[in-house]
Simulated scan of single mutants.
Amino acid sequence: MYEKKTQAMLGKKAFWFRAFTHLLMALGFITLTLIIGALGHWFFEDDIHWHEAAIDAALVIGGIGVSKLPATIGGRLFYAMYGVYVSLAYAVAVSIVVLPFAHRILHKFHQDDERENDKDDE
């Protein structure tokens, strides 16, 4: 998927396409996380509508917390585990978005090192 350090650097148009696809992957992952949270909250709580469950899941993803605390033990345990999962999901989503830029910077450094080594060999 990515070019090796011995290969030429990817063109700007192809790089921005790669960055855009990574952004779409991260948004898809966040959407999946939102769906998991809404379904879990809706499943474990008895008297909650699906739209309230979706809002609560979105608030947890945003770091605000739920608007109404879960009443059941299952709901409380779910939100405890979901909070841990959301923290990890945030790190994964940020990593997916940053990855193409980090790879391009490191690829540029490797190319600069190879050019300096070629000059030293002459």
Rank of each mutant, 00 (worst) to 15 (best):
A8P: 11
M9N: 02
L10S: 00
K12I: 10
K12A: 08
F15M: 02
F17I: 03
A19S: 15
F20N: 08
F20E: 05
T21D: 15
H22A: 05
L24T: 00
L27P: 04
T33V: 10
T33M: 13
L34I: 05
I35T: 04
I36E: 10
G37H: 08
A38I: 00
A38Y: 01
H41W: 13
W42L: 03
F43G: 05
E45W: 14
D47Y: 12
D47C: 09
H49A: 04
H49C: 03
W50N: 00
H51S: 08
A53S: 05
I55F: 07
A57Y: 02
L59H: 14
L59P: 05
L59C: 12
V60I: 12
V66A: 12
S67Q: 01
L69G: 03
L69E: 10
L69K: 02
T72V: 02
G74T: 11
G75S: 10
G75D: 10
F78I: 07
Y79G: 02
M81I: 07
Y82D: 14
Y82R: 11
Y82E: 11
Y82L: 11
G83D: 13
G83F: 12
G83T: 15
G83A: 12
V84E: 00
S87F: 13
S87C: 09
L88W: 15
A89N: 07
Y90V: 01
A93V: 06
A93Q: 09
V94P: 00
I96L: 15
I96H: 13
P100C: 14
P100D: 15
P100K: 13
F101M: 10
R104V: 04
I105K: 09
H107N: 03
F109S: 09
H110N: 08
D113E: 15
D113A: 07
E116G: 05
E116W: 05
K119V: 07
K119A: 06
E122T: 06
